[in-house]
Design a protein around this nucleic acid. Sequence first.
DNA 1: TTATAAAAAGACATAGAGGTCTTTTTATAT
DNA 2: ATATAAAAAGACCTCTATGTCTTTTTATAA
Lengths: 144, 144
Amino acid sequence: MLGKTTEYAIRALVYIYIQNMERERPGFKEIAKMIDSPEQFTGKVLQNLARAELVSSMKGRGGGFFFNEPTNPITLFKVIEAIEGKEYFSKCGFGLKRCDANNPCPLHDDYAHVRDSFFKMVNEKTIQSLANKINKREATLNRL
Amino acid sequence: MLGKTTEYAIRALVYIYIQNMERERPGFKEIAKMIDSPEQFTGKVLQNLARAELVSSMKGRGGGFFFNEPTNPITLFKVIEAIEGKEYFSKCGFGLKRCDANNPCPLHDDYAHVRDSFFKMVNEKTIQSLANKINKREATLNRL
DNA sequence: TTATAAAAAGACATAGAGGTCTTTTTATAT
DNA sequence: ATATAAAAAGACCTCTATGTCTTTTTATAA
């Protein structure tokens, strides 16, 4: 469903959040190692997330990635939107250019149901809630 | 969610089925025109579907694409499987290589719910049921 | 039995996602 | 001030999805 880039983005943000709770600011090399993603490419993805203001960064010695306002929840939707683009949840599942309630494709209603359940999920789940699950040992990032 | 190739495949099969009901065997050029897809590429996609035995074809004058056993329902799942590959519905939504009930990623259960509702839908819907919807004017292929 | 109309096949082209390498900038510690 | 450690930036590379062009094969009609 989601591209690899988006998966790296979510895993990276979760890792950063967990490390921030320990008062650490991880760099992209450490992040890539811990979330099992390609190092340089992860750096690029984090650059994009920083530009989209989903995370902050500091250059120089002692620098790294961190959340300016850790209490401000970041939904998975925000991450998906930033990486995959705004139309991700609005395209016709049948591939028609014109498809709406008045002129529906034969999948219209059933696809809408699936799409909405995905949409609901990514709006409920946040980087923080995933990180908490990992901290409570109810889930894993595979390296933590 | 689905790749363009899969969308073309489904639309093409629906169109073929509708034409078969009129005792016609459309060729890939006609199909491409009617489902609004690139002509040559649609030919390739149909070759693959024929190899996967989801549709039959005849060369030569009067040839074209058709269903050998039109009463044998083809679920969208079969088409997706043939084009996107067997793992499409089993990959971890978080991107982890190892992810199962014993060692779940933090999205495991919620993603499973979404994935299953998609899976259920594509197993219920068939080329035939979509075609019937179009014939009953309850939906459109945009050119029919 | 030959011309024709169709799919099949194969070689090639393009765009975008995913990924790497090198250089530049910047903050900090010494 | 200077060395160092970090992200940022930019130029590239690779692979896959998507798409095109040309040639070959095959069934049918004339």
